[in-house]
Amino acid sequence: MATPAFEEIAETFDFLEDWEERYRHVIELGKAMPAMDPALQVPATKVDGCASQVWIMPLIEGGRFDFQGDSDALIVRGLVAILHALYSGVPLAEVGAVDAPAELGRLGLQEHLSAQRSNGLRAMVERIRLLAATA
C-alpha cells in the first residue's frame, strides 16, 4: 500500500493526458521539494549509479523512514520528490517490502525515461532500501 502522498501523485498522473504534462508535473514536484542543505551534499550521501548528481540523507524518527534528497537535474529532482512521497513515513521494517517498481509503474515512468535515468531511479531505490536496512 502506497502512502497517501504517493497516491495523490498517482491520481494526478491519471488525470494528466499526455507524457509532456506528466514530465512537467515531475519537474514541478522537484521544484516544490525543500532544498537540501549543501553541507549534506557530500560523498557519503551521494547515490552511485546516477548520471546526474543525486544525494539522499536518511532521517529516521520514531521508527519511521524519511529522507532529504536533491539532484542537480530538474527531472531527477522530481524523481527524488516522487520517491520521497513513496517512502516518507513508512515504518523502517516495511521499507524493503515497498514494491517500488510496481508503484512507479503506475505512473508510467519507465516507458518515458532514458535508460540512464531508469538505472538512476533503480539506484536511488536500492540506496533507500539499504539506508533503511542499516538504520
Rank of each mutant, 00 (worst) to 15 (best):
D70V: 04
C50V: 05
T3Q: 07
L107F: 08
Y23I: 02
E17M: 14
L79V: 06
P91D: 08
M1G: 10
Y23H: 11
A39D: 02
E111R: 13
E28I: 11
T3Y: 05
L29R: 08
K46P: 04
L109A: 03
M36Q: 14
A39T: 06
L131H: 09
F67N: 01
E7D: 11
K31W: 14
C50L: 05
Y23K: 10
E103A: 03
G62I: 06
E20H: 13
A10G: 10
P4W: 02
I27Y: 04
G78W: 04
E61A: 01
G62T: 07
G108P: 08
L130K: 15
H84K: 04
L92R: 05
V26F: 04
T12I: 09
E11F: 01
M57Y: 13
V76P: 00
E21W: 15
V47H: 00
P4M: 04
E103W: 13
G62D: 12
E94I: 15
D37F: 01
I9S: 07
R24C: 14
A115I: 09
E7L: 08
E103N: 03
L59A: 15
V125R: 13
Q41S: 10
L109M: 14
Y87T: 02
D37A: 10
A39H: 10
G89T: 07
L29W: 03
D14G: 06
I56F: 01
L107V: 06
S118R: 08
Q41G: 03
T45S: 07
A123W: 04
V90N: 00
R24D: 12
D14I: 03
A51D: 12
P91T: 08
G105A: 11
A132G: 07
Q41T: 07
V95R: 00
A39Y: 03
A123Q: 09
E94D: 15
G69S: 09
G49T: 15
L130Y: 15
P43M: 00
E7S: 12
F67Y: 04
F67K: 05
M57A: 02
A2Q: 11
R24M: 15
R106F: 14
Q110P: 13
L16E: 06
P38A: 02
E20K: 13
A102F: 05
G96Q: 07
V76D: 00
G120A: 06
P34V: 03
V54Q: 00
P91R: 13
A85P: 01
P58E: 03
A102W: 06
V47Y: 05
L74Y: 03
P101G: 11
D48N: 11
K46R: 07
F15K: 14
A97S: 02
A10P: 09
P38S: 11
F13S: 04
A51Q: 10
S52Y: 03
A5H: 00
S52M: 10
Q41I: 05
L107G: 05
L130D: 14
L16A: 14
R129V: 15
H84N: 12
A32D: 06
A135R: 12
A35P: 09
F67M: 05
M36G: 02
S114R: 05
L16C: 15
L29Q: 08
H112D: 13
P43Y: 07
A51F: 12
E126L: 12
S88F: 03
L29G: 05
Y87A: 00
F67H: 04
V42C: 08
A10Q: 07
V98R: 01
Y23W: 10
R64G: 02
D18L: 14
R22D: 12
L83H: 00
N119I: 11
M33Q: 09
F6D: 09
L40T: 06
